[in-house]
């Protein structure tokens, strides 16, 4: 496994890992947004294979809880947090699907491109729209990894959005309360 590239030595580094055929461009976009918005270093790592045990044969979807557990066991040495990017459909047992998944204060966040590549009406959005969506989901899940909760402010990146239309309405901003929580979390990573 690639060790963290950290020229400054002290700044925490986030790994962005595409799995299987997930777009490396999307992984790079995520890394750029993590660096820009959270002021953290972010490295894009080479793709990995999707853990097979995460596939639910009945639902023909990948279980996000199993994926998190498996990826957490991979020693991403020197990396503070890990964002795993997929192009397959993810679910948690409660829900029909999830765009992303992360545990509060956990180490691994998942982001899936699968449902971000279509509009609610089934049509395809332009590529830049998909990348915006994936960046929003990644920042939202990173928020959870930094112990931020869902936010009531509909414009905040930490507001929960269950469909892509709502996701598109979210601004690329954390509200002032979430910004404060982020600052605190990043002060002692």
């Amino acid at each position: 496994m690639t060790a963290a590239t950290n020229p400054q030595g002290t700044t925490p580094v986030v790994a962005v890992v595409p799995f299987a055929d997930a777009s490396t461009t999307a992984a790079k976009v995520i890394a750029a947004h993590v660096s820009g918005y959270l002021n953290l270093l972010a490295n894009t790592l080479p793709p990995l294979e999707i853990p097979l045990d995460a596939l639910d044969e009945t639902r023909r979807q990948y279980n996000a809880a199993t994926l998190i557990q498996t990826i957490e066991a991979i020693p991403f040495e020197g990396y503070f947090k890990v964002i795993a990017l997929f192009d397959v459909d993810l679910f948690i047992p409660l829900f029909t699907h999830v765009f992303g998944e992360a545990r509060q204060n956990g180490r691994v966040a998942l982001v899936s491109l699968f449902r971000l590549q279509t509009h609610m009406d089934g049509s395809s959005p332009p590529a830049d729209r998909v990348l915006e969506r994936v960046a929003r989901i990644a920042l939202h899940e990173m928020g959870h990894l930094l112990n931020l909760l869902h936010c009531d402010d509909e414009r905040c990146l930490m507001h929960f959005c269950g469909d892509v239309d709502r996701l598109d309405q979210t601004t690329f901003n954390f509200c002032r309360h979430c910004r404060t929580a982020l600052r605190r979390a990043l002060a002692k990573p």
């Binding site: 809880a65 948690i92 047992p93 545990r103 509060q104 869902h150």
Partner: peptide
């Protein structure tokens, strides 16, 4: 009675505080 459902809910609501 299903542990995975309990855990799913648990993590989900934990995220909303």
């Amino acid at each position: 009675d299903e542990r995975i459902i309990r855990e799913s809910f648990f993590h989900w609501f934990q995220k909303s505080g």
